[in-house]
Write a protein that binds this DNA or RNA. Structure first.
Lengths: 244, 244
DNA sequence: TCAAAAGTGTTAATTCTACACCCATGT
DNA sequence: ACATGGGTGTAGAATTAACACTTTTGA
């Protein structure tokens, strides 16, 4: 086999077929927030290996699509959500023995969606369900392959991004009250935040939120809150730091 | 082709050969600091496509090695550095047309090494050279494939990590003075830092630095500084924030 | 009118920043 | 001794955290 890189330094000869073939998949860790708190979308495997275990939704990258497109397609197939959702690559996982059948490199993505319409597999998935993140972390949910490791990395990614990106708004609908947004931070970080200070901090970040005219109606007792929309900022500067 | 994922939901049948074959490479963006400031290691391509262009060092992932191992191997082949260097995955790049010859997914790594012994290719590379980062960013260096995009992402990664990880110490040798460490931040961020405040900030981060007995001898005029070693901390908490 | 949540104000503690100043060393 | 960089001190500014207080609504 040629030692030479496809993208690296020069070598004497090049044989377009002299490379070890890999399967490449795109897996997506989909997070959302429900009454139960932070939840993730998992699918139950119907066959070996790991039959009966749960796995992140995903599938082969097609020959003509990019990695991002593959992830977006998988997300849509599983959730029906086309665009607008937060979708970002985490990283690739490729231990030689991560799939006992063949050499598979999986490129993992993190997706954040507002309250999922319903946990129904897009058509072919055996069973897709929203599972509380705490249940996965506690080990009560058996995950296939190295998906436990991936899941942990994905969750850590979301927790970190909450400080520096507007990712938190992706958990909410088109418009949302500050209390709803605060609930996202509290659910993901697992700690309570002072409503007054939260308001000032979050409104003080330029481009993070955009004011709207509306107010929340439905919510019962207490004064309704103003509604906000996601702003144009791509990065939170200054970041919304978690308590230190 | 099976729609089914190797790691995803269940399907009726499984054919171990029904997946589109990809080539998978590991590319490494190697950064170091020299008298000229921040520099990166690039290799010159000797053949098409992109003959005469520069590229990140890299090569095929072997069937039996992990992605991390492949990156570490490439790093060693190009720099002679075995361990101890900072090496972390950035992310995968896999646009369908990024290599005109075939479908290649490259898993990119960022490496940070202390002053490179000498820019000699580990044996087979046509020409490996340290190139000032500013020259690459200015577009005066032609990069092959999508390596310009990768390079930019890698540099941004280093700049960001400087705040939250002890990556800055990887630019220095085994022991280093605070001035040497500060020079790293100044080179990567391109802004001057107050020596007094830098000292307090950096020494105030638990586990970041470890005091040693020695002092810098060689440096000429001025009082020699104490030498420090990298501490055990994996994350900088509180982070060393860049000026806002 | 009472409870609950939205929203504003205030203050003490903490952290930054800028810069003055002393210390140690090579020339 | 003097120039240069290491290292400490410190005062004002800016930020933060905690919580009191007022406003608006549903019940």
């Amino acid at each position: 086999m040629a030692k030479e890189s496809a993208g690296g330094a020069a070598s004497a000869e090049y044989d377009p077929h002299a490379f070890p073939p890999f399967a490449v998949t795109a897996d997506v860790a989909v997070f959302t927030q429900t009454r139960q708190g932070l939840e993730a979308l998992l699918v139950e495997r119907g066959e070996d290996p790991f039959a009966g275990c749960w796995a992140l939704p995903g599938g082969f990258v097609k020959p003509e699509e990019s990695l991002d497109e593959a992830a977006a397609r998988e997300l849509e197939e599983e959730t029906g959500i086309r665009g607008g959702a937060y979708l970002e690559q985490l990283r690739a996982f490729g231990a030689p023995d991560r799939d006992p059948r063949m050499r598979v490199v999986t490129v993992c993505y993190v997706a954040v969606v507002p309250r999922l319409p319903k946990p129904e597999g897009g058509g072919d998935a055996a069973r897709a369900e929203l599972v509380p993140v705490s249940r996965v972390l506690s080990g009560r949910v058996k995950l296939a392959f190295d998906h436990r490791e991936i899941f942990r990395a994905a969750l850590e990614h979301v927790r970190t991004r909450l400080e520096y990106s507007p990712i938190a708004t992706a958990f909410c609908g088109d418009v949302f009250s500050l209390t709803e947004l605060r609930a996202v931070y509290e659910a993901v970080w697992g700690e309570e935040l002072d409503p007054a200070n939260f308001r000032r901090k979050v409104l003080g970040i330029p481009g993070f939120l955009e004011e709207t005219e509306g107010t929340r109606q439905w919510q019962g007792r207490g004064r309704p809150g103003k509604l906000y929309r996601k702003g144009k900022a791509q990065r939170l500067d200054p970041p919304f730091r978690r308590a230190g």
